[in-house]
Write a protein that binds this DNA or RNA. Structure first.
Lengths: 128, 128, 128, 128
DNA sequence: GTGGTCTAGACCACG
DNA sequence: GTGGTCTAGACCACC
């Protein structure tokens, strides 16, 4: 459960936390059914407020990624329905944004694909 | 100069504006040296605050994409150096985020590449 | 006595249990005077905490649906008075909530009635 | 903009707020594109904390019902996509719960339909 | 001046 | 002991 937050980064802490947990799931450091640290524990470990962690857990639960229940802690949801229209639209928006960002920087299509592959491999191999 | 802002989207307007201008450059609707509308003009056309447009121009200039000179308006920078370390780090961060988002949604690597290609083609052919 | 709990659902387990027992009564799988499993038995079968089952039984008894006697276990109350003001107020509150939820989703009045009929039929025919 | 909260009710204030806003929309007291009070204003009017109102707005925005943007306040979303699978599943769950609640109370199907119609009419005519 | 985020700390519901 | 809710108050990003 190694999670690193960058407090200098301007993206909200709860979003960084959500991204980190998603990454842990993708690299199988967290598997379906696994329990996550308690809100209070993780908050203390990371040096952030309890509510910040709670919000991350809550939103991940709303996305169907975590299963959070009162008195029982949080765990990785054991099954997921296919993503909904909202999620797909959001993903396409991010892709569009990324592509334009890359092209205007002079990063070509092939180079972009290569960077993505590199990132995927880094995730699958457990590197950070 | 067709720019469409999505007021439902919760990304800041100035960022949407920056993305739109980058897209126009990528699809060659704006070429190197071309002039952009004045801040006041574009703000009025889009119905947004003057400061919002000014910020978009300013940040694009900081990225070396636009050239703004006092009293001469803004234009597409005629030449660009290779992107710097900050831009590359930023691009990699966005890639990492996108990849984790896709994987956790159940979108596989190949599907992701396909979605990117589709987006690139849509840009190159001038579709929105 | 087939009771299925959905651990993904975020409604409290004791409430799910109460709803399940009510459903069993409505579809006549449990008839007036029938005995229910002991708290310990049901808790073990469902893999939930003993207090959770106890609370469900206790609240159902408070609603006049179950009859619990010390040392004799729980059974379906053999007769019920007409529902009280508290129950009716509660039902109306739930209806109000449901109607607003449906309308704002774009589910019209007729569609809502149809969904209710479908649910009732599913219960009467013993399907889950 | 008359919103009444019941602080004795055990349902969370932010959920009561969400329900109230949905009701105002359904009875056309709030129409598409209309602005809502600022978070601070409404919090003060209702005598609740700013964060409580902010959460209600945020979750309504996540449901596509409100459009909330930094620096511009909140407004009723002018258009909604068809509800997703999650919303429909949730609605069906609430219906199932309501039906079992009614039947076990001795409220028959016709009576239930009548209560729903009464509620809808009360909403459409602007009564509370 | 708008909403967004974060903190600190309290109390409650659930298991 | 778990997560959920609420409050009070601060600071920041955006328009």
């Amino acid at each position: 459960m190694l999670i690193a937050l960058d407090l200098h980064d301007q993206t909200p802490i709860y979003e960084q936390l959500m991204a980190s947990i998603k990454e842990l799931i993708n690299r199988a450091a967290l598997r379906k059914g696994d329990s996550l640290p308690t809100v209070r524990q993780l908050a203390q470990d990371l040096g952030v407020n309890l509510n910040t962690v709670a919000r991350a857990y809550r939103e991940l639960a709303a996305q169907g990624i975590l299963s959070v229940r009162q008195g029982r802690g949080a765990s990785v949801a054991s099954a997921r329905g296919r993503y909904g229209a909202a999620e797909e639209a959001n993903l396409r928006r991010e892709i569009k944004r990324l592509v334009n960002e890359a092209l205007v920087l002079g990063v070509g299509l092939e180079e972009l694909h290569a960077m993505i592959d590199a990132e995927v491999h880094s995730i699958e191999e457990g590197g950070s």
